[in-house]
Amino acid sequence: MPDKPSGLVQGTLDMLILKTLQLEAMHGYGIAMRIEQISKGVFQVNPGSLFPAFRRLERAGWLMSEWRDTENNRRAKYYLLTAQGRKQLKGETREWARQAAAIARILEVES
């Protein structure tokens, strides 16, 4: 039984997209699926936030895009990380880990 779907913590979508693209270039649907799968269905990404995020990250210089053929021979827009995007991901991951650890500590003390 998968966990109940939940909304994304504000601002984390960008980080998740960058993370998803760390290993390989993917198209939009693939990215959405991957986030859903890895989070075991906790995060469901809707296109209304996904595509604006792509445009935003591309403009920020963290993503690049190119048209490629998919596994079933259709054309799709693939997104890949730029060097700047990798650096950004590293920074955000570290920051996230720090904050998560801090929140966890606070919650432990409380309980």
């Binding site: 595509f51 792509f54 935003r56």
Partner: peptide
């Protein structure tokens, strides 16, 4: 239904830039 209105989605994307 999942995607929402195509035009308004496009408008959202455009609004980023």
């Amino acid at each position: 239904i999942e995607m929402g209105g195509a035009e308004s989605l496009k408008e959202q994307i455009r609004a980023v830039s």
